[in-house]
């Protein structure tokens, strides 16, 4: 059964642009990206939009649908009222290239700054042992598909452009958490977290978690545990316990 919707698509580039309406039919089970493709194939062949897998696995088709950061391929049309006008805007935190496509190189720059893994020496047979319970927690962070919706929605850089130099964003906090909680890692990333990644700028308002299409608990399982790890430095109880147990600190990145 076909239903008609109006897609209100942003068309334009840095020089200027506007929302334009495209009426388009939807069939059962369709998602927003299907309708965008229909517009492309019939009404606006040059409509710029990124996509790859159309299965919620590559994280390319991020956009703001009715003002909410979402993957277009995972937004089903039955979420909307039949006949509804649906606005689709590019993710607004990054510079625009054209229409729905933005320049996300900020994220690739930040990715490179994170101090990588440095492993302990292996077992006698040259391989490593890790138990499932050691990695359960960080496997959650490895689900990240790098759609950058969390980066888009994070008000620290969304509403304060100047913070882009000093703030890495939620995606990279869970990257750091995944490395820092790695059972075999030996790098101390606390300076990096505080200074270069700017974790103190995060006021844990949790929008990153709300928009994550992989349902990663970015704030509760990633950012807050990192903030707590930093708080260890100021905790006399922890200090005493470490002295008592003879725990060796990690080395600096």
């Amino acid at each position: 059964m076909a239903t008609t919707f109006t897609l209100r698509l942003f068309r334009g580039d840095a020089k200027g642009g506007t929302f334009r309406d495209y009426p388009v039919e939807s069939e059962e089970g369709m998602v927003v990206l299907d309708l965008v493709h229909r517009v492309q194939a019939s009404q606006a062949p040059d409509l710029a939009c990124r996509w790859n897998c159309k299965a919620g696995k590559c994280g390319s088709c991020s956009a703001e649908v009715n003002g909410q950061p979402r993957l277009m391929c995972m937004t089903r049309m039955d979420l909307f009222q039949p006949g509804e006008t649906i606005s689709i805007a590019p993710i607004r935190t990054f510079p625009i290239i054209r229409d729905l496509v933005t320049d996300v190189s900020y994220n690739y720059v930040k990715a490179k700054q994170v101090p990588p893994l440095r492993l302990k020496p292996p077992e006698a047979d040259g391989t490593y042992r890790m138990m499932q319970e050691d990695i359960d927690r960080i496997q959650e962070f490895h689900k990240c598909i790098e759609c950058f919706l969390c980066q888009d929605v994070c008000h620290v850089i969304r509403d304060h452009e100047e913070k882009k130099t000093s703030f890495a964003g939620p995606r990279f906090f869970i990257k750091i958490a995944g490395l820092d909680m790695h059972p075999l890692d030996t790098v101390d990333r606390s300076r990096f977290m505080k200074d270069a990644a700017g974790i103190g700028l995060c006021n844990i308002t949790k929008c990153c978690t709300e928009v994550c299409p992989e349902h990663i608990h970015i704030t509760d399982n990633g950012i807050i545990p990192l903030k707590e790890r930093l708080a260890d430095e100021m905790d006399p109880v922890v200090w005493l316990l470490r002295k008592f147990r003879g725990v060796k600190p990690k080395t600096n990145a």
Binding site: D13, Q40, P45, D46, L47, A48, C49, I97, R98, D99, V101
Partner: peptide
């Protein structure tokens, strides 16, 4: 024949 210019033009 494609419409539009060279800037991120999926039709092209």
């Amino acid at each position: 024949r494609v419409e539009g210019g060279r800037t991120y033009n999926p039709g092209w």
